[in-house]
Amino acid sequence: MAIILPHIEDLNRTAYLPPEGDIQTFIDDDHYAEMVKEWGLSSGKNVKKEFWYKEKDHQRLVTIKGYQSYGTTGEFYTIIIEFQDGNLSCIHPAYLKEMQSSSFGKAVIADSAPAVQTAGRETEPVEPAKEKKAPPAEKKVSASPKKTAEKKEKAPKLELPADKVHFTAEVKQFALTWNPFNEENDEVVVLENVVIQQDPVIEIGLAWCSHSKTLKKLELSPGDKLEFDGKIVKKKLAKGKDAEEAFIIEEPVHYKVNNPSKIHKS
Results as ranks from 00 to 15, higher is better:
P156R: 11
G223A: 01
G120C: 10
Q173N: 14
T78A: 06
Q59A: 15
V233T: 09
I249L: 05
L41S: 04
F83P: 04
K152Y: 03
L226E: 06
G21H: 09
G86R: 15
L160Y: 02
A110F: 08
R60A: 10
K234W: 00
G120W: 07
P114G: 01
N46H: 10
M99N: 05
K157E: 12
V108H: 11
I80C: 04
F181S: 08
K132C: 10
I8K: 12
K225Q: 10
P156I: 07
S261M: 14
Y32F: 14
F51Y: 03
V171W: 04
V195E: 05
E183V: 09
E187D: 13
A149I: 08
E34K: 10
G40H: 03
L176C: 13
K49A: 06
H166L: 14
K262A: 12
D186G: 10
R60H: 08
P260V: 05
T78G: 05
S42A: 13
N185R: 14
R60N: 11
K140T: 10
Q68W: 00
I232A: 05
W208D: 07
H58A: 08
A94Y: 04
T118G: 03
E192V: 06
H58C: 06
G74I: 03
K130G: 11
I80F: 00
H58S: 07
Q117Y: 06
T168I: 15
I248W: 05
I232P: 02
P156L: 09
V165S: 01
V171M: 10
V253K: 00
P161S: 12
K164F: 12
K139T: 13
I27S: 09
E34P: 02
K45D: 05
C90Q: 15
K231F: 03
V190E: 04
W208E: 11
V201K: 12
E34W: 09
A175K: 01
I8Y: 06
P180V: 09
D229Y: 07
E124I: 11
V194F: 02
A15S: 04
E245L: 15
A162N: 10
N46W: 11
I202T: 09
D30C: 13
A119Q: 07
I202S: 04
E131A: 05
L158T: 00
K172R: 04
I204E: 00
K132V: 12
E124Q: 11
D10S: 13
N87Q: 15
F247H: 08
V171K: 03
E250S: 13
A15R: 05
K130P: 01
T72E: 08
A110P: 00
S89V: 06
A169F: 05
W39E: 07
I109G: 04
Q68E: 01
D57G: 14
T72L: 11
Y255E: 02
K157Y: 11
A107V: 09
S261L: 09
K225M: 06
W178F: 14
Y255D: 01
I3A: 15
E75R: 15
I263S: 11
